[in-house]
């Protein structure tokens, strides 16, 4: 079945070709990442546990180092949420540019193949949107990505296995604790579909991880075996910036000591 879907995707790429890299916007042959951005994907230094991108020479992000626990086994992300990628994701989500789902799905496929090569998954699930949001946008943007990704990875996906049972406010104006509070009981997983499964959860941006944590908890509560998280981009938070400065300072100190 997924063979057919892959073929259908190839036909769609043939008839309505897209050849801009979603990250840097340069033209290249074929859909998805250009060569430079593909190289960058493997060079990014990720936190061992969560999808945060951290400076070279460090191992854990500030949150993980401080001991804030994430329920998912491992999270990965591709790029920093900035520049053209940020514009693309915003257009994809809010400005009706649903055609971007294909390059972004291919981005995620590369990411999963590079960063989670040995993990076994049964199910690809997208972070769901509420009915109201769905009506406003006309499409569930991450589910479009999940469809293509699942076909490419030869996995299955389901738009109803994980649901957002009530409307939640936009999170981008809220702080960390408010986000956690807003999302309490927002998700519900269908235990018939997820019980005992290894799940790949995908989302567009990883900021504080509140959404991902809430989804994962709902999935685990419904009995799924393990949850991995893959996001397209991770935001550089204020705290991380501070952390980076701190690191830079210490590194400068150590360099000067060596001299």
């Amino acid at each position: 079945m997924s063979q057919h879907k892959v073929f259908a995707n190839r036909v769609r790429q043939f008839v309505w070709p897209q050849s801009r890299c979603p990250v840097c916007g340069s033209l290249h042959n074929g859909c998805g990442l250009c060569d430079q951005c593909h190289e960058l994907l493997t060079k990014q230094n990720l936190c061992l546990h969560c999808p945060t991108i951290i400076p070279q020479g460090t191992v854990l992000c500030r949150e993980c180092a401080l001991g804030i626990k994430n329920p998912f086994l491992q999270g990965v992300s591709g790029y920093v949420y900035e520049g053209r990628l940020r514009n693309n994701i915003l257009n994809f989500k809010y400005h009706n540019k649903s055609e971007l789902h294909r390059p972004l799905a291919l981005l995620l496929r590369e990411l999963v193949e590079q960063r989670l090569p040995y993990q076994q998954f049964d199910l690809v699930l997208a972070v769901p949107v509420s009915k109201q949001t769905m009506e406003r946008r006309g499409y569930n943007h991450m589910q479009l990505v999940a469809d293509i990704l699942a076909a490419e990875l030869k996995l299955s996906t389901s738009p109803i296995a994980l649901r957002r049972v009530r409307y939640t406010r936009k999170l981008n104006k809220l702080n960390r604790s408010e986000r956690e509070k807003e999302l309490v009981g927002a998700f519900n997983a269908d235990s018939k579909r997820v019980f005992g499964k290894n799940i790949l959860l995908i989302d567009d941006i990883f900021t504080t991880g509140a959404t991902a944590r809430a989804c994962t908890e709902a999935l685990l509560a419904a009995g799924s075996k393990s949850v991995y998280l893959a996001t397209i981009a991770s935001a550089v938070l204020q705290s991380n910036e501070k952390y980076r400065k701190q690191i830079d300072k210490t590194r400068a100190c150590s360099d000067s000591l060596k001299l």
């Binding site: 769609r12 008839v15 309505w16 070709p17 897209q18 055609e99 789902h101 294909r102 499409y139």
Partner: peptide
Amino acid sequence: LAPCFNEKANFYS
């Protein structure tokens, strides 16, 4: 037709 398949309309095609 292109947006119905969530695709970008392409003039040359």
